[in-house]
Design a binder for these strands. Sequence first.
RNA 1: AGAGCAGCCCGGGCAGCCGCGGCGGGGAACGGGAAACCGUCCGCCCGUCGAGGAAAGUCCGGACACCGUAGAGCAGGGUGCUGGAUAACGUCCAGCGGGGGAAACCCUAGGGAAAGUGCCACAGAAAUGACACAGCCGCGGCCGGCAACGGACGUUGGCAACGGUGAAAUGGUGCGGCAAGAGCGCACCGGCGCCACGGUGACGUGGCGGCCAGGUAAACCCCACCCGGUGCAAGGCCCAGAAGGGGGCGUCUGAGGGUUGCUCGCCCGAAGCUCCCGGGUUGGCCGCAGGAGGCGUGCGGCAACGCAGGCCCCAGAUGGAUGGCUGCCCACGACAGAAUCCGGCUUACAGGGCUGCUACUGCG
RNA 2: UGCCCCGUGGUGUAACGGCAGCACGACUGACUCUGGAUCAGUUAGUCGAGGUUCGAAUCCUUGCGGGGCAG
Length: 134
Amino acid sequence: MVRRRSRLSRSQDFQRVYRAGRSVANRYMVLYFFPQAADQAQKETSAGAQTARVGFSVSKRLGSSVTRNKVKRLLRESFRSLEGVIKPGFDLVFIARTDLGPLVEERGLEGVRGKMVEVLRKGSLWSEEGDGRL
RNA sequence: AGAGCAGCCCGGGCAGCCGCGGCGGGGAACGGGAAACCGUCCGCCCGUCGAGGAAAGUCCGGACACCGUAGAGCAGGGUGCUGGAUAACGUCCAGCGGGGGAAACCCUAGGGAAAGUGCCACAGAAAUGACACAGCCGCGGCCGGCAACGGACGUUGGCAACGGUGAAAUGGUGCGGCAAGAGCGCACCGGCGCCACGGUGACGUGGCGGCCAGGUAAACCCCACCCGGUGCAAGGCCCAGAAGGGGGCGUCUGAGGGUUGCUCGCCCGAAGCUCCCGGGUUGGCCGCAGGAGGCGUGCGGCAACGCAGGCCCCAGAUGGAUGGCUGCCCACGACAGAAUCCGGCUUACAGGGCUGCUACUGCG
RNA sequence: UGCCCCGUGGUGUAACGGCAGCACGACUGACUCUGGAUCAGUUAGUCGAGGUUCGAAUCCUUGCGGGGCAG
């Protein structure tokens, strides 16, 4: 899980990222991203560390609540392991597509993580020091 | 041991590391204060708790909350053998009747068809005020024949057994009886009514009478009992924001509204109400988890369950927490994720364990 | 989360409890040099499982699938 402070928690936040942000995608997921709002960035800098905030969207098309939870947990776990190497100061929304369900069943965390890295590279959200750490 | 039946229980385990949510404590920061201390907040540390037997479907029943009162009648909905259990139920327990099975046992919406109405396709003479198609018997004359008898015809005579139809045709089988027949008589069976006995009762057993009564009420309906409506997005509090314009009716001779669909009744309304257009609201807190609560003990009861006292506290999120990795073991892990709570029902489910019972076979 | 509604061939729709029809489509054949149009024929359905009834698309119970409303 990601800490609460680093989660998108309002429908407003989601709407802003969808409307104003850019999107990149592959077969398994869509990523929307947008620079954080000014007041939010202000607070972050005053607190010291600037981090990305993230939200996940898994619709009922993926299956029952059990499979949806499974998908969401693997997305969170993938993000957690990649958090340090993502460019700071962005709000991110990951949307699971229908093909992600079978991927979770067959490949597990490793598969989801790989596809997330792919999407982040497409969106140029990969920070330079990230390459060294991977 | 194999086969079957019923009931109950479990739903991967252990260890390590990283991560998440609630609660408690520590610590830090900020604010207030002279201080003690108080409040707010957290990205750090420690402790502790953290999905299910179905959390599911939303099919029933409640708790709880609100609705200017929830009252009457009609309408509407539900339930339907008997007795009990329960907060309540369409649930559960114990029985009764019916059906199935060799048995253990299983299934059963199972009140009323002599209150009324409707329907019973096709076939069949006829489908419910059943009354007759083919036919059987009697009687009458005619024809054939020596006769017995046969044939066709007539009949304001008798009959309903036999034939064919159908899911179903005024009970079934046998004997007697008769011109032919028929509960016409008798025996047994089935159904109905009355009486006696047993049982709280559904009902059972026995006796007597007599043959009158098609099915369908998960068709309308009748009878008995039950049901106010809306649902935690209920509802309450705090903060913030907002813009008004036009029309209609009325100010005690009362507009308008609420009350379940209608009617009545009741209530609100001494001044506003209502319609149209336009504008604002997608913040926070409470409700929210100590309950018809679990576990074991004793007593009462066949049981469901009740009573008494003991121990325990066991999720509480709000874009919504249980995940990832590693090792070991095994039966190699199914169906599946809380969102106000509880009691049931139904449906899905890898596999495993325990107890009791039934008939047969094998072994001792 | 709560409440409400619907389900008939591939599609759109009918059917007092009594043989499941109709239109479009698809396929085959005829007509034509070929296609279209036309004509003839064929295909294929009551969402699943139980129950009531002599008999169920219809009535009852239960499941499945789809849709709508409420901040």
